[in-house]
Simulated scan of single mutants.
Amino acid sequence: MRKTSSRRVWGMPFYDIALVPCPERNQRRGEARGVIAIGDLAVGVIAIGGICRGVIAIGGLALGVVSLGGLGCGLVCLGGLAVGLLGAAGGLAVSLCFARGAVALAL
């Protein structure tokens, strides 16, 4: 499934949903880029997907200011493995300031 908004914000589509690869774009995975991006690989202000990067990132591998995922990296993270600069919570949590979890390291 592929759906892209015709409305643009900051030069990006307002939303982009790519749940399957697009053969026309020679993609192996559904790549979504937009303010709100949902896909196998998602990049946006709000990114949701298997591998995602954004201000708010939710997914298997989440990279962002606020990250929620199996592996979350960023300023504030929540996940199975959470690595955060300001705070982290999860099974294994590593942070400079605040860490909570089964194994928590606040450096």
Rank of each mutant, 00 (worst) to 15 (best):
L41H: 04
L63Q: 06
E24H: 12
G84H: 09
P13Q: 10
L19M: 10
G30F: 14
Q27D: 09
A89D: 02
G101R: 15
P21M: 10
V55F: 07
G70D: 04
V94R: 00
G74P: 01
A57V: 12
S5Y: 04
V55Q: 01
A106M: 04
A82T: 09
L71G: 01
A42E: 02
P13E: 06
R33M: 11
D40V: 07
V65E: 00
V43N: 00
I56F: 09
C52D: 12
R33E: 09
V55L: 06
L68V: 15
G64T: 14
C73F: 13
A47V: 09
C22Q: 09
K3W: 12
G90P: 01
I56G: 04
V45H: 02
C73E: 03
G54W: 04
I17S: 00
A89C: 07
A47K: 04
A104V: 14
C97W: 14
V45A: 04
D16W: 04
G70R: 08
G44A: 05
G101L: 11
L81C: 02
V43S: 02
L86V: 14
C97K: 13
F14W: 08
T4L: 09
L85D: 05
G72L: 05
L63I: 15
I46W: 06
V45D: 00
G70K: 09
G50V: 14
V20C: 00
R28Q: 09
L81G: 02
V9P: 00
A89V: 13
